[in-house]
């Protein structure tokens, strides 16, 4: 039998027999769902934390919230996401019958929020204080100045760092198999254990992650170009 024919057989065996490719497509679906909603949770919570922290830094208000935010960042950034995931699943929700997807979204979202918060805070603090003063001198209060003047500029500056965080998040969800969630990585692993063939399923999984990241990067590049309009000289 020639090597090409044996490769085709393996391919057939790995992906076609018993519709094994559906482990990958179903897994990808779960990976994308978890990543999308975790990113959403991370953005919302991360922005709130960043606003609390920078408001405290700029005005001295929100002292207690700032303390809580700092505590949160310390704990979340100080422990591995896999440990957090397992604590949420096996400890916090141990006695509840709760969907694994929901648990994964919570764990990865709460984790990502800590990193998003620091990225957004660095963006806010990088804006010249004169912008706050210009807002104030026009009668715009702190929240209005923040929303209309500071955040749009900060967002543009931090876009590459935020994109990076979401790329990391997408790949980090690959540990969700530890709570028996059948995500993309787990899907490849199931095929491997069924066929005793490691190369093809794992390479397929890697290629799918790579493709996702490349698409995400492309989307961010487009967004960056749109936001860079005001940079024209």
């Amino acid at each position: 039998m020639n090597p090409f024919q044996s490769f085709l057989d393996k391919l057939h065996d790995t992906f076609i027999v018993d519709d094994r490719w559906t482990y990958l497509t179903n897994g990808l679906k779960i990976t994308l769902i978890v990543t999308f909603f975790a990113a959403l949770l991370g953005i919302v919570l991360g922005f709130l934390i960043a606003i609390v922290r920078s408001t405290y830094a700029k005005t001295g208000k929100l002292r207690i919230l700032n303390f809580l935010a700092k505590l949160y960042l310390t704990v979340i950034r100080g422990t591995p996401v896999l440990v957090q995931l397992m604590i949420i699943y096996f400890v916090i929700f141990a006695s509840f019958n709760v969907s694994k997807i929901f648990v994964a979204i919570m764990a990865f979202g709460l984790n990502s929020a800590a990193y998003v918060a620091e990225i957004v805070r660095s963006g806010i603090m990088s804006i010249d204080n004169g912008q706050f003063e210009a807002g104030a001198s026009l009668g715009l209060n702190y929240p209005k100045t923040m929303i209309h003047i500071i955040l749009p500029q900060a967002l543009r500056n931090i876009l590459p760092a935020l994109a990076n965080e979401f790329i990391v998040l997408l790949k980090e969800t690959s540990v969700a198999g530890n709570i028996a969630l059948n995500d993309l990585t787990k899907g490849g692993d199931i095929i491997r254990s069924a066929t005793y063939e490691a190369f093809l399923p794992l390479i397929a999984v890697a290629l799918i992650y790579l493709a996702m990241v490349m698409i995400l990067s492309r989307l961010v590049a487009l967004l960056e170009r749109r936001l860079a309009k005001s940079d024209l000289r």
Binding site: D128, A136, S137, L138, G139, N141
Partner: peptide, 26 residues
């Protein structure tokens, strides 16, 4: 109170040495 202060500032314009225009807006 801070809230009233912002209302007063509407009537006190200010022009800065370094302009402080909003670079992201036309």
């Amino acid at each position: 109170k801070e809230k009233e202060l912002y209302a007063v500032r509407e009537k006190m314009g200010m022009v800065f040495q370094h302009f402080h225009l909003f670079p992201h807006l036309t």
